[in-house]
Simulated assay, not measured.
Amino acid sequence: MRMLILGGSWFLGRAVAEQARDDGWTVATFRRGRTGEQPPGTVLITGDRNNLTDLDRAAAGPWDAVVDTSGYIPANVLDVARALEPVADRYVFVSTVSVYRGWPVEPLDEDSPILDTPHDAGPDYGYDGDPRPSRYGYGKAGCERAVRWIFGPGRTVILRPGVILGPREYVGRTAWWLRRLARGGTVLAPGDPDRRIQPIDVRDTARFAIQAAVPGGPTGTFNLVGDGHETFGDLLAAAARATRSAARLVWAADEVLLRHRVRHWTELPLWRPYPGTWAVGSRRARLAGLTTRSITDTMRDTWDWMTTGATPVQHGRAAELGITPEREAQILAAIDGKDQPVMASH
């Protein structure tokens, strides 16, 4: 079987390429070739998805499946889908839970309403709100509609991952917590340690994408998240085990962190106080074969990858992450003086 990946050298795209290759697919990636490394055993088709002439090379086909990990602008995805529709059996588009109108405020599933974006919208459509919506979410919602517009529901697979973690993660959420635990000392831990979370490992996301790419495989829309049985406490405990850290965790309640104006999602990565953040239903994907590994495996394997000296593709979002040691110490001192943490643990 033949697979074309739009992207393929970064985080999820590379995981899809490597897993598909290992599963016996003939894999080609269509990308500019300016960043990242070409996965061994795959073919590079050099081109810019924004250039219609370049798309002719990708459309040489035929392809049993297209997996699009790099589509963000509806008008562009529309052009790409038009070019590939005659030579591809199905189109697997990687979207996001940010397309839902209610995320991250309320629980949702695949039938929850999404943002209303035209299938041919440009890059400036939508706006950023707090906590919702986001221009990113608006763009992905329109991209979904663009794929369905061209390929139809019977040949379209929409994947809506939540937070993806694991080796080669370029945003750096996992890496920040691992490095912080490795540094030791007293660590400011966010919210309730028993708060359930749903990150998904990049390798589990990739495997489901490949299952969905197989001719005759499932079509439709699937939320890809962890099973929700693990907690933020489990995540930091896994980071401590992976790094052999003796750090002491001090858990500060949401209201304490908000009072100190800690930026959620960035200063303390993965912490967000909204109740819908980790309340994403994935029953449809589970029934279609989604399986997810433990956060222990994800943190261990990410640390192992980091300690080999490997570095992810450089991305601007990584610079936004992490609380400074000075600010962390100030908040910990304030907690010790008057604010009450949820708990302290080793």
Rank of each mutant, 00 (worst) to 15 (best):
T35H: 13
V187H: 10
P312C: 09
G24Y: 09
T324E: 11
T219H: 14
V92K: 07
P118G: 09
R173A: 07
V214S: 02
R160V: 07
G13A: 07
Q330F: 08
G337K: 05
D201F: 05
F222L: 07
A288S: 13
Y91C: 00
E144M: 08
W10P: 00
H264E: 10
R196C: 13
A75M: 02
Y72H: 14
R57E: 14
T219N: 10
V147F: 06
A17I: 00
D301M: 05
D111G: 12
T156I: 09
A141S: 12
F232K: 08
V27G: 10
D89W: 03
Y91H: 05
L44E: 01
L84P: 01
D89I: 06
E169V: 06
H260S: 04
V214G: 01
A285E: 05
E169L: 09
L249W: 13
V256L: 12
D254N: 15
M306G: 04
D194N: 14
D64Y: 06
G322R: 04
D124R: 13
T311W: 00
A141D: 09
L224Q: 06
G142A: 11
P107S: 12
A58I: 03
R263N: 06
D227K: 01
M306Y: 09
V77K: 00
T296A: 14
H119W: 15
R261P: 03
R180P: 04
W176K: 03
D336L: 00
A212K: 04
D48N: 15
P133A: 01
T302S: 14
L108R: 15
T324P: 05
D23M: 05
A319C: 04
I331T: 08
A83D: 05
E230F: 08
D254S: 12
T46Y: 00
G185L: 11
D234W: 14
D201H: 14
L108T: 08
Q314H: 12
P131A: 08
A288I: 04
G33M: 06
L332W: 08
P39E: 12
T117L: 04
G185D: 11
D339I: 02
Q19C: 01
T174S: 15
V202H: 05
G185K: 10
D234G: 11
R283Y: 02
G36H: 02
G122Q: 07
G33D: 03
I73K: 00
G129P: 09
I73C: 00
G322T: 01
L52H: 09
W149S: 12
M1E: 12
V147N: 05
G309A: 09
T26D: 14
R132C: 08
A318F: 10
G191N: 10
R34Y: 02
L287Q: 11
T296D: 15
G154W: 04
R259F: 13
T243I: 01
D56P: 00
R286C: 01
R49A: 07
G33S: 05
T26M: 07
T42K: 08
E106G: 01
